[in-house]
Design a protein around this nucleic acid. Structure first.
Length: 452
RNA sequence: GGACCCGUGGCGAAAUUGGUUAUCGUACCUCCCUGUCACGGAGGGGGCUGCCGGUUCGAGUCCGGUCGGGUCCGCCA
C-alpha cells in the first residue's frame, strides 16, 4: 500500500490507508487509545482498540480506515480535525528515548544551550520548521524573480585568499603547500566584480559568507547574503530600485500579515541620519509595538573613508572598491575625510539589512583609494594583482548590493535572534554545541598539514 | 579584549533574603479508565542546588575563583 500524508487523509473518507510518522502524543483510556500522529504535513488522530507499547516520538506506521468524526467530536485546532483514523495495525519503525526538553511550545523559555546541543530535536518544533520553510520559499522567490530579470546565479569559491582589509578571516591550512593558507570568503565581492569583467552583466548568488568576529543576536560567524551585481547601471538608483521592488514582492507574496510603512522606500543621506537619529540605521516604524510593520529606508552618501583609531589610519567605511563621488584624485588624497561615496545601505526596523554601491572601475582611482588606506603601490600589486590585472584588461562600470538574508528573516519572522532562522547556528563564541566544533584534529592530520 | 545577567531532579520554575527534611509543574516508571485531543485518577523513583575554595554554629542563598550559556561595547572591508 502506498503511504498517505496526514494532510491528505481528509480526502480519503472510508478508505483503507497507510500512514507513517511520529507519535506526537498518546492518550490511553484503558481499552481505547488515541494517538496524535505527526508528519511533515501536520497532525491526525489515530484511534486504536487494544493495548499498545508506544511512547512519545516513536516512529510508526499505521494501517487503518479514515472515518468521519461525529459532530460533537470535531477538533477545530487541527486541519484534519473532522476525521480520524481507525487503526487495524500499528508497527513501530523506530523507538525513541524521552526527549531532553519539550517540543510543543515555542521553546523560548528553554535555556538555549540545551536547544543548541540537541538542535535536531529543537528543529522538531513547529515554529522552527515554519521559519525554515518560509526561508526556503523566500529564497526560491528571489531566485525565480532574478531569473526572470535575466540574472545568472554563479557559485564562487569557498577556498579563497585572505585579504588585508576587512574582518578577521577564517583560514584553512594547505596540505600541498605547507605553511600556506586558504581563507574562507567574507563575501564574494572580488569574484563577482571579476564575473562582471568577464561579461556576466547581471550576476547574483545566495552566498555563504564567513567572518571570524564575535557574534551578536543579529550576527553569526557564517551567514547568508543575497549578493548581486550589475554592469552598466544608469546610477545607484537602478540598484536601489531593483532591491526595493524585490523586497516589496517578497512581503506582498509571502508575508501577508506584514505591511510596509512607506512605498517607495524613503531615502536619507548618512549625514542627515546621523544628525537626526544619531545612527545610520534608524528605526522609522510609526508604531514600534506593531510586529507587522516593516519600515525600510535607504541611507545614501556614506563617507568613503573613516579614521580607524585602533590602526591609526584611514580605512574604507564600507569597502575599498566603492566609487568616490569626487573625481579629482588629488582632492581625495588631500582630504579623505571629506569624500563621499556612491554607497548606500538599506535599513529595516533599525537593522542594516543590505549595503550596496557603485564600484570604482578606473585603475588609478582604485590605486588612490588603497593609498589613502596606507597601502603602498607594491603591496597593492601583490595583494590584489588579479583584481588590478582584470581591471586593466577592461571592466565596465558596475555596481551591486549584498543583503543579509538572515537578518531580514529574523525581522520578518518576528524573531529576536538570527539563530532562530538558521538550522544549525553557533553560540556567542562561535561554537557548535551539537557537533562540538571547533575540535582537535589528529596528530597525523597536523603532520600532513605541516602544522607540527 | 572589556562590562553586565543567568546557572536548583531530563525540562521549566519556587525556597519568607543565612536556619535545620530543598518545594511545585511537567517529563519518566507502575496501576485503573471505551471518546480523549494539554484526557482523567492513584501510587512511585529521580538532586552532593554547574564545579573548586572561603566566611559562618549553620550556605541553594554571602564572598573569591573557575566552567557553561546569554546581552551589550570593542570588533564586524
Amino acid at each position: 500500500m502506498k503511504r498517505t500524508l496526514n494532510i491528505d487523509t481528509i480526502k480519503k473518507i472510508n478508505e483503507q490507508i497507510l500512514l507513517k510518522g511520529w507519535v506526537h502524543s498518546i492518550r490511553t483510556h484503558g481499552k481505547i487509545t488515541f494517538i496524535d500522529l505527526r508528519d511533515a504535513t501536520g497532525l491526525v488522530q489515530v484511534v486504536f482498540k487494544g493495548a499498545l507499547d508506544l511512547k512519545q516520538e516513536y516512529i510508526i506506521e499505521v494501517i487503518g480506515e479514515v472515518k468521519k468524526r461525529p459532530e460533537n467530536m470535531i477538533n477545530t485546532e487541527i486541519k484534519t480535525g473532522t476525521i480520524e483514523i481507525k487503526a487495524d495495525t500499528i508497527n513501530i519503525l523506530s523507538k525513541a528515548k524521552p526527549l531532553p526538553f519539550p517540543i510543543d511550545g515555542d521553546g523560548y523559555e528553554i535555556n538555549e544551550k540545551h536547544r543548541l546541543k540537541y538542535r535536531y530535536i529543537d528543529l522538531k518544533r513547529e515554529r522552527l520548521k515554519n521559519n525554515l520553510q518560509k526561508r526556503f520559499e523566500t529564497i526560491s522567490l528571489i531566485r525565480n524573480t532574478l531569473k526572470e530579470k535575466s540574472f545568472i546565479e554563479i557559485e564562487t569559491p569557498i577556498l579563497t585568499k585572505s585579504t588585508p582589509e576587512g574582518a578577521r578571516d577564517f583560514v584553512v591550512p594547505s596540505r600541498n603547500f605547507k605553511g600556506l593558507f586558504y581563507a574562507l570568503p567574507q563575501s564574494p565581492q572580488q569574484y563577482k566584480q571579476l564575473l562582471i569583467s568577464a561579461g556576466f552583466e547581471k550576476y547574483f548568488q545566495i552566498a555563504r559568507c564567513l567572518r571570524d568576529e564575535d557574534p551578536r543576536g543579529d550576527r553569526q560567524p557564517e551567514f547568508t547574503q543575497l549578493d548581486l551585481e550589475i554592469a552598466f547601471p544608469e546610477s545607484q538608483d537602478e540598484i536601489m530600485n531593483l532591491i526595493e521592488k524585490l523586497f516589496i514582492k517578497i512581503v506582498k507574496e509571502l508575508f501577508e500579515d506584514k505591511y510596509i510603512t512607506k512605498i517607495p522606500f524613503p531615502k536619507m543621506t548618512y549625514k542627515e541620519a546621523m544628525e537626526k537619529y544619531k545612527t545610520d540605521k534608524p528605526d522609522l516604524r510609526k508604531n514600534k509595538n506593531d510586529e507587522n510593520e516593516l519600515a525600510f529606508i535607504f541611507i545614501t552618501d556614506f563617507p568613503m573613508f573613516e579614521w580607524k583609531k585602533e590602526h591609526n589610519k584611514w580605512g574604507a567605511m564600507h569597502h575599498p572598491f566603492t566609487l568616490p563621488q569626487e573625481k579629482d584624485i588629488d582632492k581625495i588624497k588631500a582630504h579623505p575625510g571629506n569624500i563621499l561615496a556612491y554607497q548606500f545601505d538599506l535599513a529595516l526596523n533599525g537593522f542594516e539589512i543590505a549595503g550596496g554601491s557603485l564600484r570604482t572601475h578606473n585603475v588609478s582611482m582604485l590605486e588612490a583609494c588603497f593609498e589613502v588606506m596606507g597601502h603602498s603601490k607594491e603591496e597593492i600589486k601583490k595583494q590584489f594583482k588579479h583584481y588590478f590585472d582584470a581591471f586593466e584588461f577592461g571592466i565596465p562600470p558596475h555596481g551591486g548590493i549584498a543583503c543579509g538574508l538572515d537578518r531580514f528573516f529574523a525581522i520578518a519572522f518576528n524573531e529576536k535572534s538570527i539563530r532562530e532562522v538558521i538550522a544549525f547556528p553557533k553560540t556567542g563564541d562561535n561554537k557548535d554545541l551539537m557537533i562540538n566544533a571547533p575540535d582537535k584534529i589528529s596528530k597525523e592530520q597536523l603532520k600532513e598539514l605541516g602544522l607540527k
